[in-house]
Design a binder for these strands. Structure first.
Length: 605
RNA sequence: GCCCCGGUAGCUCAGUUGGAUAGAGCAGCGGACUUCUAAUCCGCAGGUCGCAGAUUCGAGUUCUGCCCGGGGCGCCA
C-alpha cells in the first residue's frame, strides 16, 4: 500500500536527520538487522526535556531482551550527532532527550529557504483521479456539495504541490430516470429552454417528479422519454444538453466564488459511462464474479470471518455481507455499475494510480463493496507497467454532515437544503460587515476583496480543520470570530508579517544568515522545519485537518515571536536581517499552506 | 438483527506504529495598546478521557463485553 517512501532523510528536517543518525547507532548497538528499525523521533512533549525525544530504546529493549535504560545509554554512546545536537540525556524508563544546536537550525533553515520550501516533489506523471462536487442536473448546489467541493479542491492542490497530477472528476448526476421525467415535462409543456434559469428548472423538476408520482401515465411517458434519450434521438439530446448547460452555468458561479480549480474540462458525469455499463456487467458475469439472483445481477462477497472461531460459543452462521446489485431485474443499471465503469476507465484508460472519492460518509459501505468488486475483477491493476501487479489505490475520503447548532444536519427553516450560493454569499456579507467595523479606512474595493477572501476562507477553514469523517457544527459566529482557530486568524498573521516587510529599510540583506538564539526564535524555527514532512504525510493520508492544525501552530508560534522579538528594532542590523528573513520564510510557508487549503492571502485586512 | 462512525474541559475540537504531568480555541476571570496591524499577546481557572474488565514497566490510544448518539443494510443516487 505505502508505495511512497518518505523516510528518506530530507536534509532540512531535524526529525529525519536525527532519526537517520539514531538508526546508525541502533545498527551498531543491536546489529545490522536493526538498521531500519523506527527511531521514533518526536518533537519533545515537554520543552523542559529538550527539543526532540526518541522513544526507540523502550520498545526495542523489550524486543531484544535488553534493559531499556541501559540500551538507551548504549545508543547515546554510539550516536554520532555532535554536529546536530548537545549530548543527549536519558530519562525515565529510557527516553532519549535531544537538544538541537542553534548552528544546525540555522543551516537547516537556510536549506529550507528556497522556492519549494523544502518540499520535494515526485517525478511527473503520477495521475490521481479525484471524484468530487457531484452536481445533479436541474438542482442548484446545496450544503451537501460544500464539503465535497472544498475538500476535493484542497486535496487536488496538495497533491499537485507534491508533484502528483490531479484530475478532478465532476461526477454529474446527468443520466437517469429523473432526467427522463424532467425532459418529458419540459417537452410536454413546450417550455422554452433557451430562456430558462436554474430556479425555473428546479420548479420544473419538482413538478415533473410530482406528476410521475401521482400519475402512472406520466411515469410511463418519462420512461419512454428516457429510452429515446438513451437512443440519442436529436430532440431529446438537444433538451438534455440545454438543461445540463443551465445547471452547470449556475453551478460554476458557486465554484468560481469558492475558487475551485475544477473547470468544465473535468465534467465526467454518469452519461459519460453510458456505453461502458453493459461491458462491466458482461465482464463480471463472464468471470463468474457476478451472478443472477431474483432477476437481478449481483456480486456476492465472501464472509470476512469464514467460520465460527475456536471458542465455538457462537455457532450461528455468519451473516453474509449484503451483495452489490449491478443490474436491476428490469435490466436497468445502478450507480454501483457506473462507479465500477468509472474505476475501469480511470485506472485502465487514464492510468490513474490513486482514485480518490470525496463523498459523504454514509456511502462507506457502498464504496467498500465497489472497491472490493473492482479488486476481484482486477480492475485496480495498473496497465502497461513492468510490474503488472502494481495496483491503484482506491480511497474513499468520507466526510460527515454539516450540522446546525442543534447538532442536526443543516436545513433552512422550511426544512429544505440550504443553497450553497446563499451560504457563501452570507459568509461574504457577514465578513463585509466586520471589515467595515474593523478597518473602515480601506477603499470600498479593498473591503470587498477582504470580505470575499475572509468570508469564503472562514467557511473553508471551518470545513477542513476537523477530522473529515466526523460531522461538524456550522456556526457563523465561531467561524467568523477573528479570534482563535479560524481562517481569518491565519490570514491576519500573514498580513502582520507582510506589514513588517513593507516597512523594512532598503539596505536589508535578504540572504543574511539565520541567527536562532532566543527561545521564541527557536520555537518558530522548529515549527517551520516541520512543514515538508507534515505536508508529505498529508499527501499520503489526506488528513487535511493536519495541515490546518500545523498552520495554526505556526501562526501562534509566530505571534509569540512577534511580541517578544523586535524585528525592525532589533539590537543590530545583522539580527534585524536575520529576523526579517525568518519572518519572510514564515510568510512563505503560511501563504503556501493557505493556498493549499484554497484560502486567499491578503496584504491588508 | 447485522455492519460502520463517534463519545476527551461548560461549548467546539486536537491528541502521530502504546510513552513522561491528557492539549488547543471559544466562553469565564486577571493583565498588556502614544503598536513592527490589539482582527494580537501573556497569565489563571477548568478533566471519573462513556462504563467495566483484559494485555504490560506504561493505555485517551490495543483487545473483549456493555451503555449512549448518529449513519448504513439487494434491485434510489
Amino acid at each position: 500500500m505505502q508505495s511512497h517512501n518518505d523516510t528518506t532523510a530530507k536534509s532540512g528536517d531535524p526529525v529525519a536527520v536525527l532519526g537517520q543518525r539514531i538508526q546508525q547507532a541502533l545498527a551498531q548497538v543491536l546489529g545490522p538487522e536493526y538498521a531500519d528499525a523506527d527511531p521514533l523521533v518526536r518533537p519533545a512533549q515537554n520543552k523542559a526535556f529538550g527539543d526532540f525525544q526518541s522513544n526507540a530504546a523502550m520498545g526495542l529493549g523489550k524486543k531484544a531482551g535488553r534493559q531499556p535504560r541501559q540500551l538507551a545509554q548504549e545508543i547515546v554512546d554510539a550516536l554520532d550527532a555532535g554536529d546536530l545536537c548537545e549530548p543527549p540525556a536519558i530519562a525515565g524508563p529510557g527516553f532519549i532527550n535531544i537538544t538541537i544546536r542553534p548552528e544546525a537550525l540555522n543551516a537547516m533553515l537556510a536549506d529550507m529557504d528556497q522556492e519549494h520550501l523544502g518540499v520535494e516533489p515526485l517525478d511527473r506523471g503520477h495521475l490521481v483521479a479525484v471524484d468530487m462536487v457531484g452536481v445533479n442536473i436541474a438542482k442548484a448546489m446545496h450544503v451537501g456539495h460544500l464539503r465535497s467541493s472544498i475538500i476535493g479542491d484542497s486535496v487536488c492542490r496538495i497533491l499537485a504541490r507534491l508533484g502528483y497530477e490531479p484530475l478532478p472528476q465532476n461526477h454529474l448526476g446527468d443520466w437517469g430516470l429523473q432526467i427522463g421525467m424532467l425532459i418529458d415535462y419540459v417537452m410536454q409543456e413546450q417550455i422554452d429552454l433557451d430562456s430558462l434559469t436554474l430556479p425555473d428548472l428546479e420548479v420544473a423538476y419538482r413538478e415533473s417528479n410530482r406528476r410521475c408520482k401521482e400519475n402512472p401515465e406520466a411515469l410511463e411517458r418519462a420512461k419512454a422519454r428516457l429510452v429515446l434519450l438513451q437512443q440519442e434521438q436529436p430532440a431529446e439530446i438537444d433538451a438534455w444538453h440545454k438543461v445540463t448547460r443551465i445547471t452547470l452555468d449556475a453551478c460554476y458561479e458557486a465554484c468560481d466564488l469558492m475558487d475551485l480549480t475544477l473547470t468544465r474540462d473535468h465534467e465526467r458525469g454518469e452519461s459519460f459511462y453510458r456505453e461502458r455499463l453493459k461491458p462491466v456487467v458482461d465482464a463480471l458475469l463472464e468471470r463468474g464474479i457476478a451472478e443472477e439472483s431474483e432477476g437481478a445481477i449481483i456480486v456476492r462477497f465472501p464472509s470476512e470471518n469464514p467460520s465460527s472461531d475456536a471458542s465455538g460459543e457462537d455457532d450461528e452462521i455468519d451473516e453474509e455481507q449484503s451483495p452489490l446489485v449491478i443490474q436491476k431485474s428490469d435490466a436497468g443499471y445502478l450507480y454501483a455499475t457506473t462507479d465500477l465503469a468509472g474505476i475501469r476507465y480511470r485506472v485502465g484508460e487514464l492510468g490513474a494510480e490513486r482514485l480518490i472519492y470525496v463523498v459523504d460518509a454514509r456511502q462507506r459501505d457502498h464504496f467498500k463493496k465497489v472497491f472490493t468488486a473492482a479488486g476481484m475483477a482486477g480492475w485496480d491493476v495498473l496497465p502497461g507497467r513492468d510490474d503488472s501487479e502494481r495496483k491503484a489505490e482506491l480511497i474513499h475520503v468520507a466526510f460527515g454532515a454539516v450540522c446546525g447548532k442543534d447538532g442536526k444536519p443543516l436545513k433552512t427553516r422550511e426544512g429544505e437544503n440550504v443553497k450553497l450560493m446563499d451560504l457563501l454569499q452570507e459568509a461574504v456579507r457577514r465578513a463585509q460587515a466586520i471589515v467595515q467595523e474593523k478597518n473602515p479606512d480601506l477603499s470600498d474595493q479593498e473591503k470587498a476583496e477582504v470580505a470575499r477572501a475572509v468570508g469564503i476562507g472562514c467557511v473553508k477553514y471551518a470545513d477542513l480543520s476537523s477530522q473529515l469523517g466526523k460531522d461538524y457544527v456550522f456556526d457563523w459566529d465561531r467561524m467568523l470570530a477573528f479570534e482563535g482557530n479560524t481562517g481569518a486568524y491565519l490570514q491576519n498573521q500573514y498580513v502582520r508579517i507582510r506589514s513588517i516587510g513593507r516597512k523594512a529599510p532598503d539596505d536589508v540583506n535578504p540572504a543574511a544568515p539565520f541567527c536562532i538564539e532566543k527561545p521564541h526564535e527557536k520555537d518558530l524555527a522548529l515549527t517551520l522545519l516541520r512543514y515538508p514532512t507534515m505536508l508529505a504525510g498529508v499527501g499520503r493520508t489526506l488528513e487535511v485537518n493536519k495541515l490546518c492544525q500545523y498552520l495554526f501552530d505556526l501562526a501562534q508560534t509566530y505571534s509569540a515571536f512577534y511580541t517578544e522579538c523586535p524585528v525592525l528594532k532589533a539590537e543590530s542590523p545583522a539580527l534585524r536581517d536575520a529576523r526579517l528573513r525568518l519572518c519572510n520564510l514564515t510568510a512563505a510557508v503560511l501563504a503556501d499552506g493557505l493556498h493549499l487549503l484554497g484560502i486567499r492571502t491578503l496584504e491588508r485586512m
